[in-house]
C-alpha cells in the first residue's frame, strides 16, 4: 500500500537547515494497522504529512497504491487526498460552523460522482459506525473531545479511502477515551478493510497496533510486527 524509498525532508529554520527525515525506507501493506512511534520532534508528523501528500519530500520516492505521489501535480494530489486518503488530526480539526452530519458529509460534497441519496446513506452509516447517531445535529463545540474525534474518524472514512492517516489522534484525549478511539479505528479497519497509519508516543496505544515503527531523529530505528 505504502512504499517509501530513501526519503529525506529538510526544513529551513531561520538561517539553519534542519534535516527532519534522514533517508526513510519503509513499507506498509494493505489492511495494516500500523503506528509510527517516537518522541516529540522525532519526525513522525513530518513522515505522516509526506505520506498524506500534505507536503513534498526533499528527496526520495513515495508510492501509494502503486502510484509515485511525490511527482504528482497539486491538482492530482487534491484528488488523491480526496479519494484515497482520510485524515484524522490531533486537534480534531472539525469545521466549527457545521454540525456533525455536515462535517462528515463535507468531503462528499466535492465528489460529484456520489449521488445525494448515496451521500446521505454513507454519512448516516459512518455516523452510526462511530456511535454518534444521536448527536448528528450537534455542533463540534457541543461535543466532548472523544466525540469530536469520532466525528473526525467518520469524516475520514466517509469517502471510503484506501488509507487513513491519523497524527497523534489520542493526544488530546484521556487514556480511556484514547483506547476507545483506537479500538474504534481498529474495528473499522476490519469492517472496511482500510489501511490505518497513526502516530503516537503513548506506549499503551502502541500496544494496540499490528505494526510499530520506531522513529528517532528522522530515522526508523526498528519496529515490531514486520
Amino acid at each position: 500500500m505504502i512504499v517509501i524509498k530513501n526519503v529525506t525532508k529538510d526544513y529551513r529554520l531561520g538561517e539553519t537547515d534542519i534535516r527532519a527525515l534522514r533517508g526513510i525506507n519503509l513499507q506498509i501493506d494493505k489492511g495494516d494497522f500500523s503506528t509510527i512511534a517516537g518522541a516529540s520532534g522525532s519526525g513522525k508528523s513530518t513522515l505522516l504529512n509526506l505520506i498524506g501528500c500534505l507536503d513534498r519530500p526533499t528527496s526520495g520516492e513515495i508510492w501509494i497504491g502503486g502510484t509515485q505521489v511525490n511527482i504528482m501535480t497539486e491538482r492530482q494530489l487534491d484528488q488523491l487526498r480526496l479519494r484515497t486518503i482520510g485524515f484524522i488530526f490531533q486537534s480534531f480539526n472539525l469545521i466549527p460552523v457545521l454540525n456533525v452530519y455536515e462535517n462528515v458529509e463535507l468531503p462528499l460534497l466535492i465528489m460529484k460522482e456520489v449521488s445525494t441519496a448515496e451521500r446521505k446513506k454513507r454519512v448516516n452509516h459512518f455516523i452510526e459506525a462511530v456511535g454518534l447517531q444521536d448527536f448528528a445535529q450537534r455542533k463540534p463545540s457541543e461535543l466532548s473531545g472523544g466525540q469530536r474525534q469520532r466525528v473526525a474518524v467518520a469524516r475520514a472514512l466517509v469517502t471510503k479511502p484506501q488509507l487513513v492517516l491519523a497524527d497523534e489522534p489520542t493526544a488530546n484525549l484521556d487514556s480511556k477515551t484514547a483506547i476507545e478511539i483506537i479500538d474504534l479505528m481498529k474495528h473499522i479497519r476490519s469492517s472496511e478493510n482500510t489501511t490505518f497509519v497513526f502516530s503516537t508516543h503513548d506506549p499503551k496505544i502502541m500496544e494496540r497496533a499490528d505494526k510499530v515503527l520506531h522513529i528517532e531523529d528522522g530515522v526508523i530505528i526498528g519496529g515490531k510486527g514486520d
Binding site: R81, L82, P107
Partner: peptide, 16 residues
C-alpha cells in the same frame, strides 16, 4: 488557516 488547511487535507482544491 487551520480550517483552510483541514479543507485542503480532505481534498478541497485551491479553487474550492
Amino acid at each position: 488557516r487551520q480550517e483552510i488547511g483541514t479543507l485542503r487535507a480532505i481534498g478541497f482544491s485551491r479553487n474550492n
